[in-house]
Amino acid sequence: MSEPKVVLITGASSGIGAACAHHIVKAGHKVAIAARSIDKLANLVDELGKDHALAIECDVTSLDEQKAMIEKAVEHYGKVDVVFANAGLGASAAGTENGDPDNFKTMIDTNVFGATLTAHVAIPVLKKSKGHLVMTGSRAGRATLSGSVYGATKWYIRGYVQNLRQELSGTGVRVSNLEPGMVDTPFFDDEKPQALRADDIARAFVFMIDQPATAMVADMLVIPTPPVED
């Protein structure tokens, strides 16, 4: 195996982020996990092992906290090879007319502004490592969902990844959009038995980042297999 990568994940305290951390360590890499819930991160580090994982408390809507996040990861590991802008928030009610404006603001601050800040602080470090920036998009960023502010935030990610790819062309930095369909995670209040599992997305993520330097998985849409009809 080649030299282990150092992978920094935002929104890593549960769901897709936590599953990715487990699969990254299983694949032989190191991980820095960031989120607001430091207690959950500490428990995850205990599961992964302190030799393999570092917990960093971070609110992605704060530029100062994101700067500190990337600095702590580099100080601890000496480098960062992959940054996964995964922190995200869903809608508390469907549509725009019946939605909650406070939720709109929090969702846009996290899904749009927070992801943009992650790219901003990550790019200088990834240029040094010829690394990889991955963002969590969504199937919702490829569809028209009636009045969905959440879907609009994922349309932003889809377009922004393409713009970043152009900006970073020639630097050796790869930029990818990982687009899950519905995933059964704490993102939802009730169970989604026909949905993807967080482990499904984690395996896709590891596939993305383990490609040789000559290949870039630009966009990966992962959707649930339709149930077998009786």
Rank of each mutant, 00 (worst) to 15 (best):
L145P: 11
T106A: 11
F84M: 08
A68G: 14
V80W: 08
V60M: 03
Q66A: 04
G28T: 01
A140C: 10
H132G: 02
R36L: 11
A143T: 14
L168W: 07
D81S: 02
Y77R: 04
D81M: 12
G131K: 05
S37P: 03
R142P: 14
V125K: 02
K105N: 15
Y77D: 03
V83P: 00
M107Y: 06
R197S: 08
R139V: 15
Q194K: 10
G78A: 04
A18I: 06
G137N: 02
N177R: 10
D59N: 14
G95P: 05
R203I: 10
H76M: 04
D39S: 12
R142K: 12
Y150V: 04
D190H: 10
I201K: 01
D109G: 00
A119T: 12
R142E: 15
V6W: 06
M216G: 01
F187L: 13
G49K: 01
D109A: 07
V161Q: 07
E47P: 01
V7L: 06
R197A: 07
M135N: 04
G15R: 06
M208T: 08
I9V: 08
V82E: 03
D199R: 14
T118W: 10
A27S: 12
G114K: 05
T116F: 14
F113Q: 08
E75G: 05
D219H: 11
R142C: 12
A119N: 07
L44A: 03
A87P: 02
N98Q: 12
A152F: 09
Y156Q: 02
H132E: 07
H29D: 15
I9M: 13
M107K: 09
A73Y: 08
T118D: 13
A195L: 03
Q162Y: 04
A18V: 07
K154R: 07
E3S: 08
I38R: 09
G147S: 03
A27T: 01
E65L: 05
S176P: 03
M220I: 00
E191N: 15
N98R: 11
L117A: 04
S129A: 12
D210W: 07
K192R: 14
T116V: 04
K130Q: 11
D219N: 09
T185F: 02
L44E: 02
V121R: 06
A87K: 06
I38N: 09
A213N: 15
A115H: 05
D210S: 09
V175T: 08
W155H: 12
A218W: 11
E229R: 13
V80E: 04
S2D: 11
L164M: 08
S62P: 15
Y156C: 09
V121C: 05
G151I: 06
V173C: 01
T10M: 06
R197V: 00
P101F: 02
P124D: 06
T110V: 12
A119R: 02
N163H: 14
S13I: 04
V175S: 01
F205Y: 05
H120S: 07
G88P: 13
E71K: 13
E71R: 07
T185H: 00
S37Y: 05
V121S: 07
L221H: 03
G172L: 10
F113C: 05
S138F: 04
G11I: 00
E167N: 12
A140D: 12
V228S: 00
A18G: 12
V74P: 02
A68Q: 13
M135K: 04
C58H: 02
